[in-house]
Nucleic acid binder design. Sequence first.
DNA 1: GAAAACCGTTCCGTAATACTGAACACATTT
DNA 2: AAATGTGTTCAGTATTACGGAACGGTTTTC
Lengths: 251, 251
Amino acid sequence: MTENSTVKSLAKALSVLECFSVDKPELGISEISRMLGLQKSTVYNILSTFQRCGYLIKNPENSKYALGLKVLHLAYIVSSHHGLRDMFLPYLTRIARETKEVCYFGILDEREVLYIEAAYPSMQQQTRNILGERAPLYCTGLGKAMLAHLPPEEMEAVLAAPKRAFTGCTLTDAAALRQQMEEVRQNGYAVDNMEHEFGIRCVAVPVFSTSGQVIAAVSVSGPSPRFDPETIIRDARLIADILQPLQYQLN
Amino acid sequence: MTENSTVKSLAKALSVLECFSVDKPELGISEISRMLGLQKSTVYNILSTFQRCGYLIKNPENSKYALGLKVLHLAYIVSSHHGLRDMFLPYLTRIARETKEVCYFGILDEREVLYIEAAYPSMQQQTRNILGERAPLYCTGLGKAMLAHLPPEEMEAVLAAPKRAFTGCTLTDAAALRQQMEEVRQNGYAVDNMEHEFGIRCVAVPVFSTSGQVIAAVSVSGPSPRFDPETIIRDARLIADILQPLQYQLN
DNA sequence: GAAAACCGTTCCGTAATACTGAACACATTT
DNA sequence: AAATGTGTTCAGTATTACGGAACGGTTTTC
């Protein structure tokens, strides 16, 4: 895997793909050209190729591009290959029902939380498909539950990286976070006190693999007034109990 | 969009990506090299690049490659951009509950059925994530419901294309299918009589856009003995009634 | 247990091609 | 009507992706 075993035109094309986001799902050629500092004609060729292969679609109205439905097929392959969602879903719905809060399930990927599923307590909207959404480790319940159990040097790398303050409550100081991680390890659960979204509190419990590494976490979250200290402890216990059969069973 | 505006190395790389499937989620370099008739070193470079960008992961045990979790992020963007899943889910769960059968929801994409969601009648497994799964139009309930309402020339193109007989019941004769499509248009629903999976029957109702084109379909399916002629008609009516508020409301 | 066959990986030279940069047609704005 | 914006096309050149052969390692094969 030497450095020059990279197909540079492919890497460039993939960086074009990654310009698309939830906030900017439709992009024009000049727009991308400016974002990446590439020639317009280069971007045009790349986009045309992606389009011809089905990974992008062109809106004929404004001739802007958006991600195509073919990527869903790739996602289906990878998610069915892992199969974590199907394994956890029954437990998530039970947690949502018994805590009467929204239950989230995410895994650790590339030093981020990768959300897999959300289960709702109400019958109306049973689950929400958030497969693929991402969030930082340092300011979310799921993230902190996993961050606290990372190998020390990896945890320090995350703490040392630049952090964005999503709300006034977001902890951006490495020392404060480091101490909190110690508490998380002692308590067995992590708390997000409106650090990612204002007014939302969250309790999360880590999930460990057979080899004892953190691979995932499960949380419940909701409006902050509903999450007083006693409720937090009770919910954490409940999640841990329900997840018991899954602990140290996966790899 | 002339022919030579294609980045050939990118198209080649994407064809490598498409070697991965549900049946073969892990592939080695020589394997791909044989599948596509490419040089091993070429495949190696492409796979290395995908890996370095996070779209593939290498299993260190057997040094085989699999689709990485980064594609989930792309899928999240495209699915949240369309938002069809969230719009239909409440109706799907209601259909599953009232018919006591599994309810499927799929859209038309590239002359195939693209499955979006499956809702289950039982509380245990509320939904199944099948976002990205694909199936042919000519032998599935969802597919035939949409196929019957395609523009005539497009329908004929599908009928003329080579067809695989999944079961002994699969209709591969264009004339027979053409006649069945006429019935589908008259009845307002399509039936799959074990044509895709043996022992499974299916009733499907099409969904139309504001401009009157078919864009999607909703079905219920299950073991064939449960689907006698009266049940089929009853379920078709039920689905149509429940979907009423969505008809001609989307684009 | 040796040998053959397979694997992934590395390297170099060259043929292929991806990119630069300028020009075009068209739309919207000034 | 002029000026800026857009997406698109094209030809030449400098880049680079690829073919082919070789290497070290593991797994078959007999």
